[in-house]
Simulated scan of single mutants.
Amino acid sequence: MAHMATAPISAPTVGFDLDMTLIDSRPGIRACYLELSERTGTYIDADLAVTRLGPPLAEELAHWFPADEIPAMADLYRSLYPAIAIAASPAMAGAREAIAAVRAAGGRAIVVTAKYEPSAKLHVEHLGLAPDAVIGDLWAEQKAVALREHGASVYVGDHLGDVRGARTAEALSVAVATGPCSAAELTAAGADVVLADLTGFPDWLAGYRPARA
């Protein structure tokens, strides 16, 4: 008697944002801005800057430097970053478990972030997060390019820009209220799912896959 072939359930590829989603980069970024201020003699409110993480570096530097100085200041900041910011930035609660849950489901976990890609790779290597790919220098709707290229069906982030990136890629937007945007703001922006933090992600994913199947 012939056996009927069973169609496999498609394993998910899940994209994750980095800053304030997988890592708490505030201590490292704060220290880096303070050093940049010291080196340049320009006042930077580092405590304020770390309340609005998410957009590209140039957008924050524009609050403190003239437009014609921003490229050079970005280069200086990035040269300071590895020695100052990497070790100072811990993983967010549930980050390792979230990536492990994707793997346990047979899927792939990728990082898609606006952060300078070499710095992003240093963070995940230092923390041993070991995603399948790290793609940097993409913000908001631009993130859809990498999400589509890797076939991501879910994108997890903490910012309104992450919601826009997911929707542009036609991926499910899972938001965590661990960054500068509140749960209400993330919901209003169109997030499909809003979690308090990544500790709730494995249980959500376990329910999501049977629903897709």
Score class of each variant (00 low, 15 high):
residue 95 A to Q: 01
residue 134 V to W: 11
residue 40 T to C: 06
residue 166 A to M: 00
residue 123 H to I: 05
residue 212 R to S: 13
residue 106 G to N: 13
residue 23 I to Y: 01
residue 152 A to L: 06
residue 80 L to S: 04
residue 69 E to R: 13
residue 161 G to T: 00
residue 190 G to I: 01
residue 44 I to L: 09
residue 181 C to E: 14
residue 88 A to R: 02
residue 5 A to W: 11
residue 160 L to Q: 10
residue 127 L to C: 07
residue 145 V to N: 14
residue 207 G to V: 03
residue 136 G to A: 08
residue 51 T to W: 06
residue 202 P to F: 06
residue 64 W to M: 09
residue 205 L to V: 10
residue 86 I to H: 05
residue 69 E to Q: 13
residue 192 D to G: 12
residue 173 S to I: 03
residue 175 A to K: 00
residue 192 D to I: 00
residue 136 G to T: 03
residue 182 S to C: 10
residue 70 I to A: 09
residue 112 V to T: 04
residue 69 E to P: 02
residue 160 L to H: 07
residue 56 P to F: 07
residue 202 P to T: 07
residue 145 V to G: 13
residue 28 G to R: 00
residue 6 T to R: 14
residue 196 A to D: 13
residue 65 F to A: 08
residue 42 T to P: 09
residue 141 E to Y: 12
residue 194 V to Y: 03
residue 197 D to F: 05
residue 50 V to S: 06
residue 82 P to I: 02
residue 144 A to Y: 03
residue 52 R to W: 09
residue 5 A to N: 13
residue 133 A to V: 06
residue 99 I to F: 07
residue 146 A to S: 08
residue 84 I to L: 13
residue 93 A to I: 07
residue 147 L to Y: 06
residue 148 R to T: 15
residue 125 E to D: 15
residue 91 A to S: 12
residue 14 V to A: 10
residue 32 C to A: 10
residue 101 A to C: 09
residue 154 V to I: 15
residue 18 L to P: 00
residue 71 P to C: 08
residue 33 Y to K: 08
residue 194 V to M: 06
residue 25 S to V: 00
residue 24 D to P: 03
residue 52 R to P: 10
residue 24 D to G: 04
residue 29 I to D: 01
residue 17 D to K: 01
residue 92 M to H: 07
residue 26 R to I: 00
residue 200 G to F: 04
residue 37 S to Y: 04
residue 56 P to V: 06
residue 94 G to S: 05
residue 13 T to S: 12
residue 176 V to D: 00
residue 76 L to A: 13
residue 6 T to V: 15
residue 87 A to T: 10
residue 62 A to S: 12
residue 207 G to H: 08
residue 175 A to S: 09
residue 58 A to Y: 10
residue 207 G to C: 10
residue 15 G to M: 04
residue 114 A to V: 00
